[in-house]
């Protein structure tokens, strides 16, 4: 039983490490699919400031 708990702990820790290392590798579309001329400041838009797809800063109003 001790080994199983140890394995679960190790699995979670390794998964966390993988999550961190992969998140460094993760590229938002504005970096991956733009050329050097593009200067993008992530703001509130369809994908949100975190580029996660969840728009935040609600109430900014109907822009443009």
């Amino acid at each position: 039983m001790k080994t199983i708990i140890l394995a679960i702990v190790a699995a979670v820790l390794l998964a966390g490490a993988a999550a961190y290392l992969l998140s460094v590798n993760q590229k938002p579309a504005y970096q991956a699919f733009s050329t050097t001329g593009a200067r993008v400041t992530p703001t509130d838009n369809l994908v949100g400031p975190n580029w996660s797809g969840d728009p935040q800063g609600r109430g900014a109003g109907h822009r443009g």
Partner: peptide
């Protein structure tokens, strides 16, 4: 279309 490229973790919400 997706806000992020890699498929791990949050790829973001499809658009």
């Amino acid at each position: 279309q997706y806000p992020r490229v890699g498929n791990f973790g949050s790829r973001g919400k499809m658009d």
